[in-house]
Amino acid sequence: MVRAADEAALHRVASRRARKDVRRTERVDVRYSADEKREITAAAQRLGLAGAHFVGALVMAHIHGDNTLPGGRTVVDDLVDELAALRTQVARVGTNINQIAHRLNAGGDPHPGDSDLLAEAARILVLARQAATAIDTAADAAVTSSGRPD
């Protein structure tokens, strides 16, 4: 099963990797065995990073006593992506309700129960809007409390 967070991660990685104002010009050469290089490259690719960025970020994280990888995915990233996917699904419900209401209001002779159905559609549309707002609030709170720049 593909999680929404995995799908959404593809869209988030590029926006996370903004260029720094300071250009990196210094170089440190490091040698690895062929197996080590394959493992490093594979790990970097899983995170959507270049090998050099991955190694450099790990070294700097170690130097600064931090175990998180800059630009790497966190639990908060997964949560926000899941909330974004949920919001999309809720928005689709709202769209479907609007389409139903439009069809019922399109004219012609009303059928028995149309006014009850329209009232229920309006109620569900309000609930969908409230749910979307609550999802937005939860995503904002998750990002704000994590200290991430998103």
Rank of each mutant, 00 (worst) to 15 (best):
N96E: 05
V93A: 12
D21N: 08
V13R: 15
I124S: 06
D81S: 09
T41L: 07
L117V: 11
R3N: 08
R12S: 14
R16W: 12
T25R: 13
R23T: 09
R17L: 15
T137N: 11
T137D: 14
V22N: 07
G113F: 08
L118I: 01
R123N: 12
T133V: 08
D140F: 06
Q99Y: 02
A44Q: 01
V28A: 09
L86M: 10
D35A: 15
S15E: 14
I100C: 11
A91I: 09
A8Y: 12
M60E: 09
V93L: 12
A101P: 01
G48W: 01
A9N: 05
D78R: 11
G56T: 14
R24C: 10
H102R: 15
A14F: 11
A50M: 09
S115R: 07
R103E: 08
I124A: 12
V13F: 08
A44P: 02
L125W: 04
V22F: 05
R103Y: 12
V22M: 08
A5W: 10
Q130C: 06
A84N: 09
L104K: 01
A5D: 13
A4N: 10
H62S: 15
L69A: 00
A128E: 00
P70R: 01
L127T: 07
T144S: 11
A44D: 01
L79P: 04
L118F: 00
R103D: 08
A50I: 03
R123L: 11
E7Y: 12
P112W: 05
L79D: 13
A14R: 15
M60R: 15
I40L: 15
H64W: 02
R24Q: 12
P110R: 04
L10A: 14
H62N: 09
I97K: 04
D109G: 08
V126Q: 07
R129D: 13
A18R: 10
R19G: 05
R17D: 10
G147F: 00
A5K: 09
V13I: 15
R87S: 02
T137G: 09
G51P: 06
L125R: 12
A142K: 02
V55Q: 01
V90I: 08
A44C: 02
A131H: 03
R12E: 13
D35P: 04
E36N: 01
G56D: 10
A142H: 03
D109N: 11
P149E: 00
A34W: 07
G72I: 00
R87L: 00
I97N: 09
E7H: 11
K20P: 06
S33H: 04
S33T: 15
R3G: 05
A131P: 02
A138R: 06
V2Y: 06
A44I: 00
A122T: 10
R17M: 14
V90N: 04
L47I: 05
V2W: 09
S146G: 05
E120F: 05
I124R: 14
G71F: 00
G94H: 00
S146T: 04
D140M: 04
L79T: 15
